[in-house]
Design a protein around this nucleic acid. Structure first.
Lengths: 160, 160
DNA sequence: TTTTTTGTACAGTTTAAACTGTATAAAGTT
DNA sequence: AACTTTATACAGTTTAAACTGTACAAAAAA
């Protein structure tokens, strides 16, 4: 009875916290998986995660790979243990916020470049008549600069 | 030929810019729709948007409603015109960043409340043995506080 | 080398999201 | 009041995402 309440609490924490983690652009399973690992004392194997979350091993494998690629979890070696062991990266805030902010900055730079390329092509056209679209394009490019600089600032303030 | 190049440019701008707008949690159609309106001088009707984007009127109707609910577009009245006319909200950055930051702040507060409720319930249990999960829960709650305060700061710095 | 263990590729299934077309209610026009 | 016009509710279809199970390749154990 006591344990059951405790397990319920763990389950509730996973459910709530996973919702937050999803906001960092992780799929529901990736989010649950990360949170599960975060709450565990010891690194876990694919089979343990599969068992604990009630999902197929394949599903866990693909999800844990995404998490690993994004650097939210790390593979851990233990002598004598053949299976892959994964654990959640620490600390929470730095790990997620850095990743997230970088994604925004990279994306806004990339998009801005694409827009400036279009802008150059438009300038090469008949420059006589003033094109309203050029003004919009300026605004849109500035919008991307504002995004980049905002998230840049967020990254700096992060430790404050 | 000239017009065609210009139209291509407009199409490219819509495609690129819409990708950015999608990052603010808008669906692909919602994003294209907003960008289309943004590039137009005059407010547009459902039929015009449907025609321009090659989507059904129903689809436009539901998407424009979402945009309107989120305050990214506004209904405009013109005397003599019976159809609903929509235009994009200005300015870009303020409109989207405010909305986005508020979504994060609201969500992190809401999630934090849910976690603190779980925390209280856990405290009411047998408080004798130190539960590791309580420590994790503290960290997780702090994580939510850090999210809220970061985005709060982002909102303030926004005008700088 | 043969056998076992472990992670992942791949094909197929289930589930959910996006979209369409018809029907209808509400409002405008005659 | 009868007739149009316009937006949306709803049911059904298409498209994409999530997930599963079998099969297999790489590595370890025998």
């Amino acid at each position: 009875m006591y344990n059951s309440t405790l397990e319920n609490a763990a389950y509730d924490i996973i459910s709530v916290f996973a919702k937050t983690i999803e906001m960092f652009d992780l799929s529901p399973l990736e989010a649950r998986l990360f949170v599960f690992l975060y709450l565990q004392e010891q690194p876990k194997t694919l089979d343990e995660m599969s068992e604990a979350l009630g999902k197929s091993k394949t599903s866990i494998s693909t999800s844990i790979r995404s998490l690993s690629d994004a650097n939210f979890v790390t593979l851990v070696w233990r002598k004598g243990v053949r299976k892959d062991l994964y654990e959640a990266k620490y600390p929470l805030f730095k790990t997620f916020m850095n990743n997230y902010v970088n994604k925004w900055i990279d994306a806004s730079h990339h998009q801005k470049d694409a827009l400036e390329k279009i802008q150059k092509e438009l300038e090469c056209l008949d420059a006589e008549q003033p094109l309203e679209i050029m003004d919009s394009l300026d605004e849109i490019i500035e919008f991307h600069e504002q995004i980049a600089s905002s998230f840049h600032r967020l990254q700096h303030n992060q430790n404050a």
